[in-house]
Design a protein around this nucleic acid. Structure first.
Length: 490
RNA sequence: CGGGGUGUAGCGUAGCCCGGUUAUCGCGCCACGUUUGGGACGUGGAGGCCGCAGGUUCGAAUCCUGCCACCCCGACCA
């Protein structure tokens, strides 16, 4: 990372970009708005997948896979859904290339598809078209399915991990016999997302409901989790939608209930994406690079040997390998970096850049004294510990670092969350402190739009667990029952 | 899609206004040697159709025209 570039500098996005590239997580591919996720970045994403997938399965969901291509006509079946996605779709119109006579290739105009195919921006339509065939009776319900997939949204502006043209995600699509059950599913999934993001990513989130204008295209209610980044901007980290009977009606998905009556099924959909990687990076990183929570770090501990000659290397390696073995027995992910092609100082900096939670250094002096040098990535502190205590200390540290990262992020968020009464205060705060702002709002789309236009701040959510309190809208002065969460957002 | 900016080695750049030897510097890369407890040093070396296509000129990285790509700010958005 550039030495003089810090996250406190004005150009936060440049800092972020360099961090993603230098920490070897991902890079721009050169293909419009698509990124290459490099092995190190992908291994973190894989850890996230494993934990999320486990949580989905523990709550009765199964994985399946649906097609990448969606016939254009499917989209026109749900009116608000098409409105929401029409402007950002990649469309397949032809199925063949031919030689252009100049050494290249061109699209063969004779190979035009009769019906264009949309590269999925999300899979509601094709999945509901399929569910129609799968669901006849209440006995087929609930249908609880998730898929891990890539989707494409042709956004105007892209950003590594946060908004790439193609991104990886999971999307759950469930069908239920009753409205109540579907709402419970929607709420359960937003709770699972919050639990994952807080417990595994160590990123505190606020659960809430989206306002009507921020709602998912085709949803009756959108639940979300919102996180606060270090530059004071909010990031939507996950969404769970109650779709009512909208898609069931659009795709004619009916079932016969116990009483013999036919009804449309009730639906939900929910998803998190590789954007979570962006949240992880922007929440914990410092000027030395990435900081990974132990639960998601591909390597939780790295051992760096210090030596001058082969003899010392053998001596040090022996201890390093023993320590590695003992830690692995306790379930700690350890890497022994015995490469002779890089110097210790270089390795120290590289692992700090990559965010490895704990570094152990062993040199001849340590072997002699029965010690190791332990360095924590989260606090950047170093200490010598006894060789005999290393396993218990490191095992405890995994929990401690995980908690410390969460607490740090939580107190940052508390510090950056302000309640205001007047619109003037609100505007002033946005320009100075930023962060989350709680304020009364009259519940109208007009006021919401006006605030967005004048300040660029949006209502991130109507928090679920905030207390009800009477007040008046900071803009219109009309009555309000609850403060809502505002912020400038990614 | 509007407004602004930038394209020179793998990366970051100087040169461009005011055309003129072999295109500058740093990092990285390769070889050899000395090094190794916080990003080592020395010596030598490789690597460029100066974004692309035209034009002006004896001569173009530099001037002109067109195109393309990327970045930033808006609008849009997980």
């Amino acid at each position: 990372m550039a030495k003089n570039l810090t996250k406190r500098s004005e150009d936060y996005s440049k800092w972020y970009n360099e961090l993603v590239i230098n920490a070897d997580l991902a890079e721009n591919s050169g293909v419009r708005g698509c990124m290459v996720i490099k092995p190190y970045g992908f291994s973190i994403w894989e850890k996230m997948q494993v934990e999320l997938d486990r949580m989905f399965k523990e709550t009765g969901h199964q994985n399946a896979y649906f097609p990448l291509f969606i016939p254009k006509s499917y989209f026109s079946k749900e009116a608000s859904h098409v409105d929401g996605f029409a402007k950002e779709c990649a469309i397949v119109t032809h199925y063949r290339l031919r030689e252009d006579g100049k050494g290249g290739v061109e699209v063969d105009p004779d190979a035009k598809l009769e019906e264009e195919l949309i590269v999925r921006p999300t899979s509601e339509t094709i999945i509901w078209d399929t569910y129609r065939k799968w669901i006849q009776s209440y006995r087929d319900l609930p249908l609880l399915i998730n898929q891990w997939a890539n989707v494409v949204r042709w956004e105007m502006r892209t950003r590594l991990f946060l908004r790439t043209t193609e991104f990886l995600w999971q999307e759950g699509h469930t069908a239920h016999a009753t409205k109540q059950e579907a709402i419970e599913e929607t709420e359960q999934m937003v709770n699972i997302y919050a639990e994952f993001v807080e417990d595994y990513m160590a990123v505190p989130v606020i659960k809430g409901l989206k306002t009507e204008s921020e709602r998912f295209a085709g949803a009756e209610e959108t639940y979300c989790i919102e996180a606060l980044m270090q530059d004071g901007k909010a990031l939507q980290a996950g969404t769970s939608h109650f779709l009512g009977q909208n898609f069931a009606k659009a795709f004619d998905v009916k079932f016969t209930a116990k009483d013999g009556k036919q009804d449309y099924v009730w639906a939900t959909s929910w998803g998190v994406s590789t954007r979570l990687m962006g949240a992880l990076i922007m929440t914990h990183s410092d000027d030395k690079g990435l900081v990974l929570p132990p639960k998601l770090a591909p390597d939780q501990v790295v051992i760096v040997p210090i030596y001058r000659n082969d003899e010392q290397f053998e001596l040090v390696s022996k201890v390093a390998k023993e320590v590695m073995k003992e830690l692995r027995t306790k379930g700690v992910r350890v890497k022994f970096d015995n490469r002779d092609t890089y110097k210790p100082g270089w390795k120290f900096n590289d692992y700090e850049l990559k965010g490895v939670p704990v570094r152990l250094a062993i040199g001849p002096r340590d072997v002699e004294n029965g010690t190791l040098e332990l360095a924590r990535r989260d606090t950047l502190t170093k200490e010598f510990i006894s060789r005999d205590d290393v396993v218990s200390i490191v095992v405890d540290l995994m929990d401690e670092i995980q908690k410390n990262l969460y607490n740090k992020a939580a107190s940052f968020r508390t510090e950056k969350t302000t309640e205001v009464v007047t619109y003037d205060e609100f505007k002033e705060l946005l320009n100075t402190k930023g962060g989350f702002i709680l304020a009364h709002w009259d519940g109208t789309a007009e006021t919401e739009k006006l605030i967005k236009k004048e300040t660029k701040a949006t209502i991130r959510c109507i928090p679920l667990d905030s207390k009800l309190e009477k007040g008046t809208c900071m803009v219109s002065g009309k009555p309000s029952n609850q403060k809502v969460l505002f912020a400038k957002a990614y």
